[in-house]
Computed example of a mutant assay.
Amino acid sequence: MLPSINPQIRPDGRQSQTAAAIQKGVCRHLRAAGFATLTEFTLASGRRVDVIGLSPSGQIWIVEIKSSLEDFRADLKWPEYRDFCDRLYFAITTDLAPEIMPAEAGLIVADAWGAEVQRDPAEHLLHASRRKAMTLSFARSAALRLHGLYDPEMM
C-alpha cells in the first residue's frame, strides 16, 4: 500500500502580511466567480504578476496588488501587463485611497476573507495567438506547481 501524501503549501514569503492578505482575498473572490488562479505568475516578458485568473470562458485577468502608497509609487511596470490580459485590475486594502489608482485599470478592495470589485476596466481582448500562448503557459505553470507539491525534489 502506498503512503498517503498530504502536500502542504507554504507562503512564498515575498509579500508583506498586508499583500498576502489581499492576495488571499482576491484569489477567494475569483475562485468563487469560477476562475482558476495562480499567484506570482511569470509572463513571457519576464515580468511577474501578483495574481492571474483564467475564467471558464478563457478570459484572462491580471490583478496587481498594492499594499501601500509607497508600493504603488515604486511600481512602474504595471502598464506592461496590459498586453497579457483581457482585464487589468489593482487590488488594495480599505486603508488605501482608491482615487490614486489609475482609472484605466479596474479596482478591487480586498482583505484575507474576500474581495469586492469596485470598478471594472474597459475590456481589451487578447489576440487569439496571445490568448493561446497565455492559456498554455498558465496550464503548464499550474501543472508543474501541482507536481512540485507531490515531488518537491523535482522543483
Rank of each mutant, 00 (worst) to 15 (best):
M1S: 14
M1Q: 10
I5L: 15
N6V: 09
N6W: 03
P7H: 06
Q8S: 09
Q8H: 09
Q8G: 06
Q8P: 01
Q8L: 12
I9E: 05
R10Q: 12
P11V: 01
R14G: 07
S16T: 15
S16H: 06
Q17F: 02
Q17R: 13
T18L: 05
T18S: 01
A19H: 13
A19M: 04
A20S: 13
A20D: 11
I22L: 12
I22T: 03
Q23E: 12
Q23F: 04
Q23S: 12
Q23Y: 04
K24S: 12
G25A: 05
V26P: 02
C27Q: 14
R28P: 02
R28Y: 08
H29S: 06
L30M: 15
R31H: 12
A33C: 14
A36P: 03
T37N: 07
T37G: 05
L38D: 04
L38G: 06
E40H: 08
T42N: 02
T42L: 00
L43H: 03
A44V: 09
A44Y: 06
S45H: 00
G46H: 03
G46E: 01
R47A: 13
R47S: 11
R48Y: 04
R48P: 08
R48I: 11
V49D: 02
V49Q: 03
D50R: 09
V51K: 03
I52V: 15
I52E: 07
G53H: 07
G53M: 00
S55R: 06
I60N: 05
W61G: 04
W61D: 13
E64M: 08
E64D: 14
I65H: 05
K66Y: 05
S67N: 09
S67H: 12
S67R: 09
S68Q: 05
E70F: 07
D75W: 03
D75F: 02
K77R: 11
K77G: 11
W78T: 06
W78F: 11
P79M: 10
E80H: 10
R82L: 15
D83S: 14
F84T: 02
C85R: 11
D86T: 00
R87V: 02
R87E: 15
L88N: 06
Y89S: 00
Y89E: 03
T93N: 08
T93R: 10
T93L: 01
T94S: 13
T94W: 09
L96E: 07
L96M: 14
L96N: 09
P98E: 01
P98F: 02
I100G: 07
I100E: 05
I100L: 14
M101P: 03
M101C: 10
P102Y: 11
P102D: 07
E104S: 12
A105T: 13
G106Q: 07
L107M: 08
L107I: 06
V109L: 08
V109I: 13
D111Y: 01
D111N: 14
W113R: 14
A115K: 05
V117I: 15
Q118Y: 05
Q118P: 01
R119F: 03
D120P: 00
D120L: 12
E123H: 08
H124F: 07
H124C: 00
L126E: 03
L126G: 05
H127L: 13
A128P: 11
S129M: 09
K132S: 08
K132N: 07
K132Q: 14
K132Y: 00
M134Q: 14
L136A: 11
S137F: 00
F138N: 02
A139G: 06
R140M: 09
A142L: 10
A142V: 04
A143R: 13
G148S: 02
G148I: 02
L149T: 04
Y150E: 01
D151T: 11
M155R: 14
